[in-house]
Amino acid sequence: MQSDRFQTDQLLQELLAAETAVWRALQQGDVAADCAALHTDFLGVYPSGFAGRDDHTDQLEQGPSIAQFAIEQARVLSLGPDCALLAYRATYRRISRPVDQNKADQNKDVSEESAMYVSSIWRREDGVWINIFSQDTKALPEGLPNPLP
C-alpha cells in the first residue's frame, strides 16, 4: 500500500511538472515549448468549442497570453501504465491586447483573476509525458453555492 501511495505521489508530481510547463509556455509566449508539450492530435474542449494543437499554439502569435497562474487542489487518476488524468483548479490572469496592434504606445492590460477547473489527459511516449486532451470548466464565483450534490 505504501508503494501505491508513493507511485501516485510520484505520478502527480510528474504530471504537475508537465502541466506547469504548458502554463509557463503560455506565460512566456514560448510557442516551441507549448507545441512540444501537446500531442499532434491534441484535443482541447473549451467554452469556445473544440481546439487542436495549432489552435492552442496560435494564441501565442502575439506573445504571452497569461500574466500569472496558480495550480491548486491537484489530483491524479491513473488510466493505465502510461496514461493518466490530472485534474486541478487553476487561477490565472490573461493578457489582453490592444485592438490596434500598430499603436506602439498602447500597453498590454492584465485581466482580473479568473478560475477554472481543468482535466488533462497525459500519455507517456518514449519516457516523456505528452498532453493528449484538456477540458476547461469555468469555476463558480467565490461564495456561490454549488448546485451539484
Rank of each mutant, 00 (worst) to 15 (best):
M1Y: 02
Q2I: 05
S3L: 15
S3M: 15
D4M: 05
Q7S: 15
Q10I: 04
L11H: 04
L12R: 06
A17W: 02
A17I: 04
A18G: 06
V22M: 08
W23H: 10
W23Y: 13
L26Q: 05
L26W: 06
Q27E: 11
Q28K: 01
G29T: 01
D30N: 13
A32G: 04
A32T: 11
A33G: 03
A36L: 08
T40Y: 15
F42V: 02
F42D: 04
F42Y: 13
L43F: 01
G44E: 01
P47R: 05
S48A: 14
S48Q: 08
F50R: 14
G52M: 01
R53N: 07
D54L: 09
H56N: 09
H56A: 15
Q59M: 09
Q59I: 14
L60F: 00
E61A: 15
P64W: 04
S65K: 06
I71Q: 02
E72Q: 12
R75F: 03
G80W: 04
G80D: 02
C83F: 02
A84W: 01
Y88N: 02
R89I: 10
R93T: 06
N102W: 13
A104C: 06
D105P: 03
S111K: 07
S111T: 08
E112M: 08
M116L: 13
S119L: 08
I121P: 03
V128Y: 08
V128M: 14
W129D: 06
I132L: 10
I132H: 13
S134K: 06
Q135Y: 06
D136V: 14
T137E: 01
K138A: 15
L140R: 10
L140W: 09
E142Y: 10
G143T: 08
L144G: 03
N146W: 07
N146K: 11
P147Y: 03
L148I: 06
P149H: 07
